[in-house]
Amino acid sequence: MSEITVEQTHHEAPPNHGHASPHARAENLKLAMWLYLGSEVIIFSVLIGAYLVFRFNYPELVRAAQESINVALVGLNTFLLLGSSWAMVMGLLNIQRGNRDGLVRWIGLTALMGTVFVALQGVEYTELAHEGIAVYGNEFGMRFYAMTAFHGFHVIIGVLWALFVIFNARRGNYSAENYAGVEVFGLYWHFVDVVWIFLFTFIYLF
């Protein structure tokens, strides 16, 4: 039986039966969320790859399209999303210290900033449409809208999730010991933020 004990030293976390302890539950949730984010990495890479191929093969078309883009507006949007990530993580810090009201306030700020982000993206789309950058018949437009709209869809899901977290928090479902729900939502939200960091650079600045 000695070889079994050798193998057991490879365990990084103690195996558990069922989902009795909240700690095990949190570990399961976080691993599942990271795996999901891993698959999201791939799906975004398809859209980003399709764009980058276009960007490097037809730089002059991209330059022309970038003329009509309002970088100030998008820059503001970037700040909103970065700020919402910060608010998110401050909310997590609050609930880890047992401060439920702080959690609600900070996540509320996250949701608000996410909403404004989506609204400003709508404004941007309208401006671009007036400039003639459409979904079809426009080589830049189709790639631009596919990427940003797919990301925007993720932000909308994130905002709804934030509202759900607030709802849960107000009902007292989180505490200093039990905050896995907040943490997992945070992972998702920060991932959406990271994707935007790259989209912003690739689309607007490259």
Binding site: L35, S45, L52
Partner: peptide, 13 residues
């Protein structure tokens, strides 16, 4: 879990 798909994504791009 994050790095392996990321490497895949970078290679494919």
């Amino acid at each position: 879990v994050l790095l392996i798909p990321l490497i895949m994504a970078i290679i494919s791009i």
